[in-house]
């Protein structure tokens, strides 16, 4: 279920560790503690931190001017526009789906609920390459509807619609995955009270449900957007790699890299790395916001 596995991140850490360090039963001997910290942080620096630093270091290896020219190149700008377009279509569609699915699953009992919940996770466990392949099988020249679309001169594969479809598939579960457990935990009492008091369905949703789920919704949308803008494998299969036309930003990075234009490739890649950092920062902020009311509630109970 937690194929995103991010949902649990960022619970309020940092406040609790003294609890363990001041307790003889839960602390390790100093050399053990030093060893664990060295191994853990060494691993982190080697496998997470350095790959991030290298992106920016390589981007500026030929100076700011080269990096700037790579980023403002017409082909790069076309790639940015296409990436924004694909995400701009895929994210809202999956957001609406996520809300509908969470409403059905978390607010009602019905047969086959568990199966439905598992099926929603499917795209997470499918290789990105297969996520592209499926659209080739349906809309490609030899695909199910390939002939019809060729006759009517509509291009899906190796064109923008294919890229959008592939993006929708890989980002499909993100919002639903965040909302379902959140709404299940909150229960349906609030909405039932509103309905019994005479609120219409839409009123109940806007005034009761939405304020309750806003942080989870935002969180899911942020993750969905990051994946939509960064997807490579699925989009690569359906794109056709036509410069300035069917290249998203990650595909543009690949083309520059394969032309041995490393500084330019990393300069464009640094845009995506910055997007990733903004995503992580927003994610931490949302977690902090979402945890705040819960924390103050707990304190009030204690008093």
């Amino acid at each position: 279920m937690a194929v995103t596995a991010t949902r649990h991140g960022g619970s309020p850490i940092g406040i609790g560790s003294h609890r363990y360090e001041d307790n003889a039963a839960t602390r390790e001997r100093p050399w053990v503690r030093r060893l664990i910290l060295t191994l853990a942080l060494g691993f982190f620096i080697l496998f997470v931190f350095m790959p991030l630093v290298v992106v920016f270091h390589q981007a500026l290896s030929k100076g700011w001017g080269t990096a700037w020219r790579a980023v403002t190149d017409p082909d790069a700008l076309a790639a940015v526009r296409l990436t924004l377009l694909a995400a701009g279509i895929a994210v809202p569609l999956n957001l609406v789906f996520g809300v509908a699915a969470a409403w059905a699953i978390a607010r009602f009992e019905f047969r086959g609920k568990q199966v439905l919940s598992t099926l929603i996770d499917l795209p997470f466990s499918v290789s990105p390459v297969i996520a592209g392949l499926i659209w080739v099988l349906i809309f490609g020249a030899q695909g199910w509807f390939g002939h019809w679309f060729i006759e009517h001169d509509i291009k899906i594969i190796f064109a923008v619609p294919g890229i959008v479809l592939a993006t929708i598939f890989v980002t499909f579960p993100f919002v639903a995955r965040e909302l379902i457990p959140l709404m299940q935990a909150q229960g349906r009492d609030d909405e039932e009270a509103a309905t019994v008091l005479g609120a219409s369905g839409l009123q109940t949703f806007w005034r009761v449900t939405l304020p309750n789920i806003k942080w989870g919704l935002l969180y899911g949308t942020i993750l969905c957007n990051a994946r939509a803008m960064g997807e490579f494998g699925a989009v690569s299969v359906v794109s056709g790699h036509i410069r300035g036309q069917t290249n998203t930003v990650p595909l543009h990075v690949e083309i520059l890299y394969n032309e041995y234009n490393f500084a330019a490739a990393f300069a464009v890649a640094s845009l995506l790395a910055m997007l990733a950092l903004v995503t992580l920062a927003l994610k931490s902020w949302v977690e902090w916001q979402a945890n705040r009311p819960a924390a103050s509630e707990k304190m009030m109970v204690r008093k």
Binding site: T6, I13, P51, L52, V55, E231, V253, L280, K283
Partner: peptide, 19 residues
């Protein structure tokens, strides 16, 4: 460190690949 643990989720795979 806690925030950057999720970097591999957030960083596009092509960027991770070249870096």
């Amino acid at each position: 460190v806690d925030a950057l643990i999720d970097l591999p989720f957030a960083l596009p795979t092509a960027v991770a690949g070249i870096s």
